[in-house]
Design a protein around this nucleic acid. Sequence first.
DNA 1: CTTGATTCTGAAACCGCTTGCAAGAATTCA
DNA 2: TGAATTCTTGCAAGCGGTTTCAGAATCAAG
Lengths: 334, 334
Amino acid sequence: MNKKPITITDIAKRANVSKSTVSRVINNTTPVHEEKREAVLKAMKELNFEPNIFARGLASGQSRTIGVMTQNIGTPFYDSIAQGILTRLTTSEYSPIFADGRWKAEAGIVAAETLLGRMVDGLIIVGSRLTEQDLAALENRVPIFLVGREVDRWERRCLFLDNVQGGYDATKHLIDLGHRRIAHIAGIKDHQDAIRREAGYRRALEEAKIDIDEDLICEGSFDGQSGVEAIENLLKRDIKFTAIFAANDMMAFGARLSLYRRGIKVPQDVSIVGFDDQAESAFFTPPLTTIQQPAHEMGAVAANAMLSMILDEDYELPKLKTQVVVRDSTGPPR
Amino acid sequence: MNKKPITITDIAKRANVSKSTVSRVINNTTPVHEEKREAVLKAMKELNFEPNIFARGLASGQSRTIGVMTQNIGTPFYDSIAQGILTRLTTSEYSPIFADGRWKAEAGIVAAETLLGRMVDGLIIVGSRLTEQDLAALENRVPIFLVGREVDRWERRCLFLDNVQGGYDATKHLIDLGHRRIAHIAGIKDHQDAIRREAGYRRALEEAKIDIDEDLICEGSFDGQSGVEAIENLLKRDIKFTAIFAANDMMAFGARLSLYRRGIKVPQDVSIVGFDDQAESAFFTPPLTTIQQPAHEMGAVAANAMLSMILDEDYELPKLKTQVVVRDSTGPPR
DNA sequence: CTTGATTCTGAAACCGCTTGCAAGAATTCA
DNA sequence: TGAATTCTTGCAAGCGGTTTCAGAATCAAG
């Protein structure tokens, strides 16, 4: 709205050098005589110079921007990942720019295109359902890193947790407490995480030589209401169970509410385990036993990997793990 | 990573016109003969042209980007606002770019500078604690819109809810049920919303001619743990109360947990009202009576206003209101 | 004191798009 | 029919950096 910003030319004049030299000290691309270098630095400080990112982007072809494609499927898990990305990027030269894949039909592609249109130097995709073809297409336009999703032959470029293990641990915890009739409220049918968590559930039961009763496995959609309905349904059909493993906390909340309405006590009558460990879970009544996912850290790791990819540096992908957080919603069956 | 992108020049050649003309049809700045216009449009379609935003930004001085400064003080309220902004912007030519004011000391300023460095065309500030001086300084650099915060003489450029009314309604609801000893768990001390909600609480009591017992007003910090502590504290000091109004849902959860641990029944022994109506509240046990805020809508409205400000158009600022959502955590005192 | 190698540095050519300006074409008014 | 307008359009000058290239300056070696 007011006075015009200062440019590299102003700096050049004041430091008595050419634009080229200024550019060189800014980017450290070519050695510059110490004396001049300091003059430039001084001038930049005095004039409080900020390079124009458009000019820079136009000339260099780089935006110093990382696109983040999020997808809320109803859990705060993805939000936390996004937060982690933000946190890591805050201390870098790069800024994130978000796009949400949730709204439109071909949301994923559209979002990706938007981001590419913004010339992002890299794309972090958080738990999308883009097909592998789409991914392959994107892949040779820009560096990509996937979070919360596992894709074959992308080992170095995706970060995810062992959801089978998580589901297994959750179920095992219940089995160890003595439960035999364990209901499972699954997540969205074709969602990778949901499928794996259920697989973990099955594996734990099999290992414990407990017959799997398909009646105990309910469909859910990761939201509270579906948790309520799943349990109502079980109760209505008079199917007996002493424990519930819900594929996420939100559904666990719903399940608990449904029990509460019938006066069924947790954990005395029925134990509940969730998945996510969202902030509210620790304050639930009773505090919810759940599987914790290091979402924030995942985001940070992903951002870090992306920065490395862009700079063509090497990077580590730590093996992050889920963890059982035992609280008061689980106990031995009566 | 591969072949070079097509430019306005390519289009110009193919359509047999000059770059200028192409630019004009893209931006609709000057009438262009229908015939040529169509040729250009056709060429653009055929070549799948996407203007380079850097070149455009450099030449025009506009970025088609709106900066969003968020600040999480621990409630999902701000996240919802951000979502609302995203939603509205999705159907516009503008993209949001986020910065978080949470981390560093002078976080607010730093975040704002980052955004300005990115040449945002507008800045939406979500519930920050920037001083009015800071705001004034920013104000003449870029259009600003504030969400979730009230500032004098910024009437047209800030959107907030009547938190006094919200606090009043919450308290009134309890009074109407017959409660007299109503505890209040306040939010962060110098937080605008916290102050207003407490003011509403006081006003409701005064209006009902109920003496205000300062012992019933506890400090809190908007997180679950502080809710737990507030109530523990009250109980420990043997201060009697039959209802609680917590300045947000998260603290209400904490309060409820604290009661649960002592076997105090909700709502039979103590009623609870929260503030926010976050997604989990409806599935709490018992479902939490709370004050709903149209956060998503606020975000959308803010984004809309910002777009209008940028285009120098007129805009409406609907009067959004809080609303009492009565669920099962409140009832008449025993 | 040359000569060839090594550093530094500035000039100038872009990067892709917007926009002021002026000229050509088309239309209108006397 | 000629002059005055009104439309359209292309040219070319930026916008503020980056980067290539060649020349200047410095240095070690011959």
